[in-house]
Computed example of a mutant assay.
Amino acid sequence: MKILFKLSILTAFVAVFSACKKDSNQLQLQGHDQNQMMGIMHATMAKMDTLKMTKDPDNDFALMMRIHHQGAIDMANLELQSGTDATMKQMAQSIITAQQAEIAQLTSFLKSHPAHGNDPDFDMQQMMDMQKGMKQADLQIINGRIDHDFAILMIGHHQTATENARLELLKGSESAMKTMAQSIIDSQTKEISQFQDWLLANGNK
């Protein structure tokens, strides 16, 4: 009797699953190892893992954000190349323009500001934030459709950046980096909301 009951449950599950497969709006998945956006995120994380920290919060914020920004630019370039949605392509171009300019500012700061701080706790928290963001990305539902994957993964990417920026506001001392940190919080919080609105309107497309 128990076996028949279990078989009935399994048959019902298969029937529901098969019916869902016929629905064009069903939740679709793609393996993370096959996903181009995830490939960029993993490559970015690998670069951050090898970053030699200085224990100076301002310098390490600049060093980490420079790599993190480049990851966003690489994802945005993929959206421009392979995406089809006009809104997402427009946001991608905006991200490229803004973050290329910030990378130039970060590089200029690093050239003119020798590391002199000693705050290993900042480095540890900064890396923990990045690793947490990567774990969250690995849990995201992605479907191989560039516009959808760009939007959903950039939300987490931006959230990690804002967490690091808040840490810089708390621990940093240089006005240039604190000003940039606040700018990152303001602009990327707004973009997170825009990505969320697009996903709510477009679903699993």
Rank of each mutant, 00 (worst) to 15 (best):
D33M: 09
T189D: 12
D85F: 01
A12Q: 06
A92D: 02
F17T: 14
I67P: 01
G203Y: 08
L10F: 04
K111E: 15
T44M: 04
A137Y: 01
M41S: 12
L153P: 01
I141P: 08
D121L: 08
L29N: 07
L51G: 00
K135W: 03
D119H: 02
K22W: 10
T44G: 07
D129Y: 15
A72D: 04
A181M: 06
E191Y: 10
H69V: 07
I95A: 05
Q182W: 04
Q99H: 15
A181C: 03
D149P: 05
H69Q: 12
K135C: 03
M37A: 14
E191M: 12
M177F: 02
G203A: 09
D56M: 04
V14K: 03
Q100T: 15
T50Q: 15
I73V: 06
H32G: 01
A43G: 08
L110E: 13
T54M: 07
I146F: 04
A72L: 09
K6W: 06
L10T: 07
K47Q: 14
D74K: 12
F17I: 14
S18Y: 06
T97V: 11
Q100P: 06
Q26W: 12
Q196D: 10
D129Q: 15
A101M: 15
E168W: 03
L169T: 08
N59E: 05
I184N: 04
Q140I: 09
H158G: 08
K171M: 07
K47L: 05
S94A: 14
K205N: 12
L199T: 00
D129G: 11
M38K: 02
A104G: 03
R145C: 06
G39T: 03
V16L: 10
D138K: 05
A98W: 01
